[in-house]
Design a protein around this nucleic acid. Structure first.
Lengths: 216, 216
DNA sequence: GTCTATAGCCAGATAGAC
DNA sequence: GTCTATCTGGCTATAGAC
């Protein structure tokens, strides 16, 4: 525990590089399209060596998820320092962060219905722990925002939570990006408005998430 | 054109059965998880015979999409008969229809980023034509609803359209279903509220999509 | 057109030398 | 632990008899 050998540090660094590559490739092409061989080539090692670090392709994806969830937890930590912000403002910041991660190509894109992958994730304690930690933090803000009436109290809290999570794999930003009419910042603003304000117009302009379309 | 032979009718019926199976399997497990052999077994014919009808796996998926888009067009046709409805009400009905199709296991689930599949779809005129027909119809209602101010006019019309399309592959209904606390009808109501009203509460209760949670 | 059988390919995972 | 080489299995697609 006291001294970590140099060799071990090198190994840890290499694993970090592997997970970083996996993260990028998952964001770029998704789980099934990403091949283990590709990951190895990207890191610059042999495929056989990869399997000394991670027992399966699913384990690679799980490690990438742990990495991004750790980043999310770090963001949540600094976000909660802003004690002046209301719960809803915290939630908006979180969704904005997710959307920015997605457009930066940093958000792993996992299929919702791959059974072997889901099974592997559900048995990965590191993953589960972090999902629960993130959900607890978001859940507290959701409950608070619903009690003040800022977030629609008629919505089940879990529906709000899932909706936030689902922004990580929303195809709409990709479609808008493909259209070429909007830059990343505008797309984030549009999606924030869609998520929090919905499609319907709001009567008082005051409580509406502003979309800065005039900047184009 | 006048007389269609009995043999041809049998073939058409068989192809209909094939596409129906593909549709169901795509809804159930998605494109990559569905195998051609599985489709053949489900229809009750040999794999080789399938390739006499459809040249590739992608062509199977395209046929399933054409089928569901034809259903959508039929729905749009009857929906537009309701001349008493406002454009927004039409749009809500459409989203509701999509959500119901999804929970009924009738909505094919295609990956957003499979390049070979996308290429095949974009070269399939039958598919393209129907997508454009559906988009034209929805687009007209969207423009009308934005001009009256019912739908937020600050949103780009294509963002509204994409948001509606994206409800077909929204993972949130699946999460809610897995939770087991809500039935399909409640889930549809929740998602309609999320889509049109957003997460934030609305000041006047009048213009809010009601969620019938008291029924549980 | 339908079947059985198989070609061809590719990706995940393993073995064994160093 | 890293490498090269290989195994294994499954999937798309095709061939050829009937």
């Amino acid at each position: 525990m006291a001294g970590v050998s140099f060799r071990q540090q090198v190994l840890v660094a290499r694993e970090g590089a592997i997970v970083a590559s996996v993260n990028r490739l998952l964001a770029e092409k998704g789980f099934e399209a990403m091949t283990v061989e590709e990951v190895a080539a990207d890191v610059g090692i042999a495929k056989g060596s990869l399997y000394k670090h991670f027992v399966s392709k699913e384990a690679l994806a799980a490690a990438a998820m742990v990495r991004v969830l750790d980043r999310a937890l770090a963001f949540l930590e600094t976000e909660s320092q802003h004690s002046a912000a209301t719960p809803v403002e915290h939630l908006k910041s979180c969704v904005r962060w997710m959307l920015q991660m997605q457009s930066a190509g940093e958000m792993p894109w996992l299929p919702a219905q791959n059974s072997t992958l889901r099974a592997a994730l559900l048995q990965d304690r590191a993953y589960i722990d972090r999902v629960m930690a993130v959900s607890d933090r978001l859940g507290a803000w959701i409950v608070a925002a619903q009690s003040t009436g800022a977030i629609n109290p008629a919505l089940p809290a879990e529906a709000v939570l899932y909706t936030m999570y689902a922004r990580a794999c929303d195809p709409v930003p990709g479609f808008l990006r493909a259209g070429g009419k909007f830059n990343d910042e505008q797309i984030v603003d549009i999606l924030l408005a869609l998520c929090f304000d919905g499609l319907l117009a709001r009567s008082p302009a005051a409580d509406q998430t502003s979309i800065s379309l005039l900047a184009s």
